[in-house]
Structures are given as C-alpha cells and as structure tokens.
Design a protein around this nucleic acid. Structure first.
Lengths: 245, 245
DNA sequence: AAGTGGTCTAGACCACTTG
DNA sequence: AAGTGGTCTAGACCACTTG
C-alpha cells in the first residue's frame, strides 16, 4: 500500500508540476483559489500528506499562499522578489583562483561616531573597536573594509591578527550571525578611500553597508567599498523547475 | 495517540530549536555528524516524520546538509550566503507612498548589438525590440530602463503602452519569469543617461544589468541605471529563529 | 547486513474561517 | 456544521552508503 515503485518522478513532484503548469498557462490566474489538499489527494489518488507536500513546497517558493480555514491561492507573479547574493570577499577572490591578502591599516578603540552609535544601539562617543583593512586581489586593492565592532559583544576583537583571518571569519566564529542588513550604493570615494584603493576621487565606487547581529544584539557595522571598475555583485535565480537537483 | 495539545510550540519546532542551539553553542561543530532521524525521534518521543521535518527545514535553511545513506551534518557558517532583494521599481516607488510615472523615450525594432546578441542567444544585427523608458519618483527621474527584448518570445512588445504598464509587468504576464541573472555595478553615466536622469556625468550611478528567461528561452536583457544619490538597494536577513511567524 | 535518508499511506486531532 | 489548512502518528518500502 506504499510507494509507486515508478522510480521516475515522485508523486509530490508530479503534483507540483501540474499546479505550476496550470498557473503558467493562465488556467489558474493570480489570487484564484486552487484545489484543497483533500481534492488534490483524491484527484491524484495519493494521501493527503503527499498532496500537502506539493502545496507546502510551492508556498515556500512563493508560488502559492495559503490561509488556514480558507484555502490555497495563486500568488502574484510580481511579488517574486529577486535576490542578489553577497559573498565573503576572501572566498570570492579565492574562488576566482586569485590570491587574497589583507593589509591592516588601523585597529584601535575609538569614540563611537553618531551614525554608528544609532546603528549599533550605543551612545555617541561610547568606546567602539574600529578596524580598517584593505583587501587585495593578487596585488590590486579591491575593497576597503571599515568596521565598527561592539566591544560588549566581542571583547577580544583588538587582539586578533586580521592579516591572517578576516573580521568576517573571526566574527562568524565568536558571535554567530543571526541577522543582517545590507544597503548597496554607488558613491564617489572620499580622499581616504581613494588613497587606499589607489583610484581617482572621480571613480565611482560600490559601497555595501552591512550591519550584523548575533544573539546578544548588534555586533558590527561595516562599510565595504570597492572600485566600480574592479568589483561587481552578481546573482542568479531559478524560479522554474521546483527543487531541481 | 496524536497531537501534544500543548498549544505552545509544535514538536518539530522544538526539535529545530534544540538542534540550532547545539550548533550555536559550538557543541555540534561544523561538518560534525548530528543524530539521525530515528535517534531524534526516540530522544524526543516523536514519530520519525516529525523528527524528519525538523531536519528537513534546517536543511532548506542552509543550517544542515544531508546525504542519503550517510547522515546529517552541520553546514559551515561561512556558506550562509547573504541575499539582497531587488524589487520592481514601480512597486518600490509606490510602497514609499510616492507616485510612479514612466516616460517612453523610444520603442522600436533595431539591429541587435553584439553584447545583447550574446546575452540573448541571437546573432549580431538580428532584429530585436528596444525600449527606453525613464521612471519617475514623483517628478524626479529615478531610473533609466534600456531594455532589449527577443521578438521570437514576445512578438507584440512594440504594441504595448509602457506609460501605463511597465515592461516588467507586461513581460511577467506574457512570458512568465523562470530564470534571471543580475549584476550590480557602480559606473559613471554616459551622455545619454546623464541627460535623461538629469544628473552630471560625474555623478556615480548604480547600474543593474538583468537578463530574464522564460520557458522558451532568453526573453530580455536590460540595463537599469539610477543616480547613486537617489537610489539604493537594500536587504534584510534573518538567519536565526527558524521560520518565525 | 545494518543504518541512513527519501517517499508515502491512512488515519487522527486541532485551530481556524465561512455560512 | 462543514471545510480548510497545521500538526502528528506508526507504520511501510525504497535507494543509497558503509563495513
């Protein structure tokens, strides 16, 4: 009374494909109600748990939305929000087959600037740890990392050797990431940044502002600035083929 | 013999939290093997399906990885890739409570430029549809959208009124998105772009290059260019609290 | 052969929404 | 009261990996 033994596609996947095709061809328009778990189960001669799995996975993929006591509905295609991947700079350089190195420009305790204070939930001029690091791709400066770290969360930050370990790697180890914000902007570099990246002050830069949290609260606030001519963010998405392996 | 009737947290969620806390505290280090479905089921006095659900969801979240016949393992924290959201420009403007309008600068058939040809899988100088649109946030030009569309996929593209409907909305309707690429860069605008965005040629711009696919193949290739001072991409991530509602 | 994860069944009780 | 989705059980057979 179990398994179909047709080694091909699992039943839940066949049901997903059926639903997806109904939506794609327009038979089931946006926000229309689709068959219930029980209806699909009897139509496909499967148990309710199997029909449910198909609906559940499509919901996680953003294809459907469901309301208890009401039903399952086709999500609007517009809300398929695109996603861009942001990777660790050292990994990125290495995965291109290049050599990553880091130059430590500054590592000290400073009074917290206003912007950083509000981001980290500190008071202005409270002590914060600050690191300024240039990341090199082979011999070329690729990214300037200016990072402010909450001393309460990471008391030993100033004792690390950031030419051997990136702050990201160290922080991941001592204060595991639970949440993060990102903002990506195109800016002109200040004098400082253009000097360390060895670019003109007229060359546009991609600046990623990142704030990270761990269980205890805000951990760090960082500006990751790269020359526009040397760095870009890329991402690939696959909406179709639910869970292709 | 069913439900716990403790209306609080479901059993599968309790198991997820247990596993997550073991990883967070370092008790279960990266790449270490964690208890099997059967072991968890008996430890928590639940059915295997319930233990399985906890493992499954943590795997989808990137916290674990599993291999059939071998076991379940702690994923490396480093591979938690951060994600940035890219939204439809019209939705974005409207969700800020502003008024979105579009100015159609050009809509015609042109010979396909080389770069576009290779992106869309066409031959150089094959006919392609081209639209050039300025998106306004209230009265301010926010984004210049230069889009190349594959005529084979979207034969009626030139007949649309893109002051009423964005190309993104039209394409979503006629050639549902199945895949997409994105690249984000900081650039200086060319003369054309600075004119339509009403900015100096020295002002950095954020340029998103997007390629979309539908079932039939490559559909469109677009440059979405915005003044750096007016536009940024943001994203928020929540790694912890598996599936908080 | 024994253990692992992958799929599936035929039931159950529950919270919730609608008429 | 009837239907919906949410959680859960105690089984089953399967493909796969390891000793």
């Amino acid at each position: 009374m179990n398994q179909t033994t047709d080694s091909s596609t699992p039943k839940f996947a066949a049901i997903k494909e059926f639903i997806f095709s109904q939506i794609e061809t327009g038979n089931w328009p946006e926000h229309s109600r689709i068959p219930s778990e029980n209806e699909l189960a009897s139509q496909f001669s499967v148990s309710r748990m199997t029909a449910r799995r198909a609906l559940q996975e499509l919901t996680k993929q953003g294809v459907l939305y469901r309301t208890q006591g009401v039903g399952s509905f086709v999500a609007s295609a517009k809300s398929q929000s695109a996603l861009l991947e942001i990777r660790n700079i050292a990994d990125e350089i290495q995965s291109r087959g290049h050599f990553h190195s880091a130059e430590l420009v500054q590592l000290s305790q400073i009074p917290c600037p206003n912007i950083v204070a509000s981001a980290l939930g500190l008071q202005p001029n409270d002590p914060v740890f600050f690191s300024l690091i240039v990341h090199y791709d082979n011999q070329l400066p690729l990214q300037l990392e200016a990072r402010f770290v909450n001393p309460a969360q990471v008391p030993d930050y100033l004792q690390q050797d950031f030419t051997q370990l990136t702050p990201h790697e160290y922080l991941s180890a001592v204060a595991p990431l639970t949440e993060a914000d990102h903002v990506v902007e195109a800016i002109l570099p200040d004098a400082f940044t253009s000097k360390y990246l060895r670019i003109s002050q007229h060359e546009p830069c991609l600046r990623l502002t990142r704030r990270t949290f761990s269980r205890g609260g805000a951990v760090s606030f960082a500006y990751l600035t790269s020359a526009g001519s040397r760095y870009r963010l890329g991402g690939h998405l696959n909406f179709a083929a639910p869970n292709k392996k």
